[in-house]
Simulated scan of single mutants.
Amino acid sequence: MTASIGAVFLMLCLLLIKHMFADYYLQTPKMLSGRGEYFHLGRAQHAAVHVVGSVVVFLVFGAPLSFILIVGALEWFIHFNIDFIKASYSDKKRLEPTQPAFWRAAGLDQLMHNLTYVAMVWAWVTFAAA
Rank of each mutant, 00 (worst) to 15 (best):
L12E: 05
G42E: 00
L59H: 06
I85L: 10
F127I: 03
F127G: 00
I17F: 05
Y38R: 03
P64H: 10
Q110A: 05
W124A: 00
V57N: 03
I5S: 14
S90V: 06
L65K: 10
I17E: 09
Q110W: 02
T98S: 14
M20E: 13
A7T: 14
A130H: 09
D91A: 13
L16V: 04
Q99H: 09
Y89F: 15
P97V: 15
M11S: 02
F61W: 05
Q110N: 06
V49A: 10
S90H: 07
E96T: 12
G107M: 07
W103K: 11
A101F: 05
D91S: 14
Q45F: 05
Q99I: 03
Y38E: 01
L32Y: 08
Y24W: 15
P64I: 05
A119Q: 02
A3H: 06
H50I: 04
R94T: 15
F67L: 07
F84G: 07
S88C: 08
I70T: 12
W124G: 01
T126N: 08
L69T: 14
L14C: 05
P64S: 09
F39L: 15
S54M: 12
A47V: 01
A63L: 11
M1W: 14
A47Y: 00
T116S: 14
K93I: 01
E75S: 07
Y24R: 15
A101K: 12
L108F: 12
T116K: 10
A47F: 00
F67G: 00
G42L: 01
M112S: 07
Q27C: 04
L10A: 09
T98P: 00
A87E: 07
A47L: 02
A123D: 01
P64A: 11
G72I: 03
A129E: 00
A3G: 06
F77L: 15
H113P: 05
A105R: 09
A3V: 11
R43V: 01
W124S: 01
G62P: 11
A7N: 10
A119F: 02
L108S: 10
F9M: 13
L10P: 00
L26C: 07
Y24L: 15
D91G: 10
L26T: 07
G62W: 07
F80W: 14
T116F: 02
H19A: 12
V118T: 06
Q110I: 02
V8D: 00
E96A: 08
A3D: 04
